[in-house]
Design a protein around this nucleic acid. Sequence first.
DNA 1: TTGTATGCGTTATCAA
DNA 2: TTGATAACGCATACAA
Lengths: 363, 363
Amino acid sequence: MTCDDDVDSICSMKKVDKRTMKSSNSSAPRRRATRADVAKLANVSTAVVTYVTSNGPQSVAPATRQRVLDAAAALGYSPNAAARSLKMGATHLLGMVIPDATNLYFAELAAAIELAAEDHGFDLLVAHSHGSRSREVQLLQSFTSRQVDGMILFTGVTDRSAAALGATNTPFVTIGRNLGVSDALAFAVDHREGARSGVEHLIGHGHTSIGLVIGDEPAEVAHSREVGWLDALADAGLHRGPIVRAPYSRAGGLEAGRELLRSDQQVSAVFVASDIQATGVIRAMHEAAVRMPEDMAIVSFDASPESEYTWPPLTSVQQPVQEIASCAIEAIVKRRRGEPAESRMFATRLVTRASCGCVNPVN
Amino acid sequence: MTCDDDVDSICSMKKVDKRTMKSSNSSAPRRRATRADVAKLANVSTAVVTYVTSNGPQSVAPATRQRVLDAAAALGYSPNAAARSLKMGATHLLGMVIPDATNLYFAELAAAIELAAEDHGFDLLVAHSHGSRSREVQLLQSFTSRQVDGMILFTGVTDRSAAALGATNTPFVTIGRNLGVSDALAFAVDHREGARSGVEHLIGHGHTSIGLVIGDEPAEVAHSREVGWLDALADAGLHRGPIVRAPYSRAGGLEAGRELLRSDQQVSAVFVASDIQATGVIRAMHEAAVRMPEDMAIVSFDASPESEYTWPPLTSVQQPVQEIASCAIEAIVKRRRGEPAESRMFATRLVTRASCGCVNPVN
DNA sequence: TTGTATGCGTTATCAA
DNA sequence: TTGATAACGCATACAA
């Protein structure tokens, strides 16, 4: 879509401010101040400017130092990161691939990564893969070209991606995906065990027929959660409930919920493998006037901000998002220093709210 | 939080894969291939490599061209973006400041910006301000140092930010905020008119006592929406309903909803100035067993993905997110070319769903 | 059609 | 304590 496509927007025809205009066509198109400018103004050599701005490697006389600082401030000088990167061989830039920012679980994870990255002085280059493998490869190449100091991938690493990455030395970690499926460093919860704990909770509430709503793409994570669901059922000696596979989205959840209600196999509870789908499932239940948790108890996965504000609020398997994020960043830092780094698996925690029947939500 | 903080995580002690290890301490710590490497392997000069990789400025013999391509592929060569930026004076990088990614309206806008930016060959440097002004200034400085080709700010531009920016020639635009409050190029809907249309819809349903839930910080946007609410009430000759001010979050909405129910002034409808707050308001109503829309009709603002999956689904004032995004990016492109660019205001569209009483949600 | 040489803004080594 | 200078990897004007 281009800016001129629209038909129903009001064009304000507001005149561009004079200052704004001026900056785009002033006679002397002001160049960014460089180190040389600062040096000249402060009457020192360019080297001294660096000594001041980077506190070394040589010390400088207090008076000179102040002169440089003043000059830099006067000129609004800040070092050119491109030149700096070129010289130093480090960009302090991390690339991050997010499948879908409208999934609040990913959004939360991304925010945590940003925080952890900042602790180590990294900025973040962010891009969305929208689940496309080819786009993922393309993004990794772009990151590589930008000489990022590391990459964080929310998506699984495909062979093609790994190959693209293998040619470089760029450290990369995967987040939220199973450990051990590739050579990549991975940081994630135990999806199988987490799912199992959620389903066990449902069983504890007395449910004997428990369905499953899960993503429709073959992914190791989804598979693990499915196995966890099976584990719990098997341990309790229960038969397998119906499985509904649907896209990993709110709309997918809505469809799945409707299908679940059409199923021959009646269930009194369902384990939904992600909050984002659970949101849709809940809507489907409301549409059919199915009461939750009385007629249908629900437990989901992720415990994203979304899960707290559905109605009824969702009981959900929580991932230690901040911990995962900081471990991932630290792993990248270690790898950059040549130190060994290890993949790691985290425990989940079940957040009990009303959807499973634990809490009476109405005051 | 550091990685070692945790107590309840399982340490998998998984040994690092041999290939992974090797890449971190192999005897010849493989340097990224440079143009010179490609040139040597292809038996050409470095210039020819560039002629091939950038299709010009000179043409090269097909055979030579193929040799270069092969060599580049064999070495996994991709141009060093830092060096390229330094030489070309352009980074093809845009900086974007998001207040809060767990607000799906912002997340959606950010995704649209990314798409539009990609159309013009820009990558995105993303950071969250968490609403902090000082952090915003800090981010702008970081972006400046990185020599971004432009900036997109979701937050209003403060005087300090503008001053920081004024020192550079970096084009920047604000998104979603009112036009005309600063010199910045701005792309946003008509908040006042949008709010007015939403409240008028509620009046059309016969409501005569309509409350307002809105952000608790003094922002022009919030003010405009409040004025739009007043406009509609005044036009209909209705008295002003109660106003509840709360943080711009789900939790804030929850608090606001509870307070609204405690209010002396009874209302049958409420205009909530953002979906994210509406989510909380809805929960407050459910908790108090207030039926929607029968006992409390709701119209909100943004029509983010969230609004479609609340219960009842929210009637909400929609912003043309993609259009806003593409206009913003095009404005930056124009400004970079020295062409004039204009701020622009967009019309909203009311998406009617069940929360106002338009649709019977239960099948 | 291809090669040579210069400079982009930095950091850091080495001399002064 | 300071200054001159050589890379870093690339794009391109100009020469061959």
